[in-house]
Amino acid sequence: MRRRDFLRFVAGATAWPAVARAQEARKVYHIHWLSTGSEPDPFLDGFREGLSALGYVEGKNVALEKHYGNPAALRSVISELRRGDVDLAVSSGPATRAMKTVKDIPVLFALSGDPVALGVVKSLAQPGTNFTGSTFLSLELAGKRVELLKDIYPGLRKLAVLSNTDHPGEPSEWRATLQTCTGLGIKPTYIPFAGAGELDNALEEASGEDADAMLVFPDVVTMVDRAKLAEFALAHQLPLMFGWSEYCEAGGLLSYGANQRATYRWLASYADRILRGEDPAVLPVMRPEKFELVINLKTARLLGIELDTSAILFRANKVIA
């Protein structure tokens, strides 16, 4: 009996590398994409772009399973996730908060807020957990956005702030905004809403505020409905500040922040490293180093804003004419 065991062990040990290689070749990685947004998802597109640039082909060596829904719905999906079925989970925005309970699956995130404050990593340099990814520094940029709005529209006195409370780090973002507004002599009006369902109500509320301009916190929900927001801003003659360039492309006036698509593209390289067996605990959380100011001149004209070309436009990284 013992001898047989030994033989089996030897046979197994010699056969293993070959088996492992064969599995490596045939292995299809299962990546679960969790988002509170909905399709079409520009973030997912960025991530896919990154994966294919690294040689992954969907359906051949990688399978992307998409889960969209509100945090509660995502939680139930997350509770079903088991190691073995899932090689990697990728979450964006509010979905990351729902993922906090996941301990045995590597999770990649792209957060506006501070992942340390959210409690998913121990430090940016050394996450030390099964989480890693990218943070957009929205907290720091929140004040910068108000400042830029003021630079473009010096007569700004009353600012409507539209915020999705589902978003992780949202309270601190609001606090930073409030602080800046106070410093710049602006009176902010906080218009919170919880999830896509409440957006229309929030807009209705904003329309009644008689604000000079509006600031929308970048978030999956507002991202998905960016065209609706742009239309709303135009209809109410509100200069509107957003976080990401996609918004301006949809007709928004201003955006300041990191390039989302680039960030998600980059996230794919971490996905690749984790799938190859690297430990997310030692992969530092990335922070974007490039921020782009995008101005839509068409919208500016429609809003009747005379942009001081010398003072503002030269600062723009991208101008949509």
Partner: peptide, 11 residues
């Protein structure tokens, strides 16, 4: 490998 740099002193 930028991640080595981002590990700070420990890397």
């Amino acid at each position: 490998d930028i991640s080595l740099v981002l590990r700070g002193r420990s890397g």
